[in-house]
C-alpha cells in the first residue's frame, strides 16, 4: 500500500472507531457498547471493509443481533461500510465495563458490578446468600438486600435498599 493510501485507510479507521464507540447498548442505553466492554476491536479487512468485533455478555444474550444492526447502521450513517464479527475468546467479564460506564450505570440508578471472581479449576458451591459489596445507587447506603438473584436482563440481579426503601438493579459480577 502506498503512503497516501495508508493514510486514507487510517483516516477511515479513525472515523469508524469514533462511530462504533458512539453506539449504545440496546438494553442499557445509558452505556455505549465500548463502555460495556462488548466492542472488542475495529479493524480494516483486506478488501477495505471495516470489521467490527463484538463479544456476547451472556451466551443467550438476545441483544446481539440488535447490537450488530446498530453498529452497521451507526457506521453507515458516518459513510462507512462495515461488517460485524463475533469473538468468543476471551469470555466477557464485567471487569471490562469502563469507569465512565460504571459512572453512567450509577447515575441511571443501576448498581455497577464489583470485581469479577477470578478462579481456575474447580468452582466451590456457595450455599449461603451471595456476598457482594453493594451500595444503593440512590442514597448510597450499604444496608441493602437481594430480592431476586435474576432480574430484567441476564446481566442483572434485583436489590432493595433498607434505608430509602427503593428497589434497584445490580449488574452481576461475572
Amino acid at each position: 500500500m502506498s503512503g497516501a493510501m495508508e493514510q486514507v485507510a487510517q483516516q477511515v479507521l479513525e472515523r469508524a472507531r469514533t462511530a462504533a464507540s458512539a453506539v449504545v447498548d440496546p438494553e442499557l442505553p445509558v452505556l455505549t457498547l465500548a463502555d460495556l466492554g462488548v466492542l472488542r476491536d475495529v479493524t480494516l479487512d483486506d478488501d477495505g471493509v471495516v470489521a467490527v468485533a463484538i463479544t456476547p455478555t451472556y451466551s443467550g444474550c438476545p441483544a446481539m443481533a440488535t447490537m450488530r444492526d446498530d453498529l452497521v447502521r451507526g457506521l453507515a450513517a458516518a459513510g462507512i461500510e462495515a461488517r460485524v464479527r463475533v469473538v468468543l475468546d476471551p469470555a466477557w467479564t464485567t471487569d471490562w465495563i469502563t469507569p465512565s460506564g460504571r459512572a453512567a450505570l450509577a447515575a441511571a440508578g443501576i448498581s455497577p458490578p464489583g470485581p469479577a471472581p477470578r478462579r481456575t479449576g474447580p468452582v466451590p458451591l456457595r450455599l449461603g446468600p451471595p456476598r457482594r459489596a453493594v451500595r444503593c445507587p440512590l442514597c448510597g447506603s450499604a444496608d441493602v438486600e437481594v430480592t431476586s438473584e435474576f432480574g430484567s436482563t441476564a446481566c442483572k440481579a434485583l436489590y432493595r435498599c433498607r434505608v430509602c426503601r427503593e428497589p434497584f438493579d445490580h449488574v452481576k459480577e461475572i
Binding site: L88, D89, A91, V123
Partner: peptide, 21 residues
C-alpha cells in the same frame, strides 16, 4: 468448544448456586 465452555462456566456457577440454595 473451549470458548463456549469458558463462558458457560460462569453461567453454570450461578445456576448451580441458585439451585443449591
Amino acid at each position: 468448544l473451549a470458548a463456549v465452555a469458558a463462558k458457560g462456566v460462569k453461567e453454570l456457577t450461578y445456576h448451580r448456586d441458585f439451585a443449591g440454595r
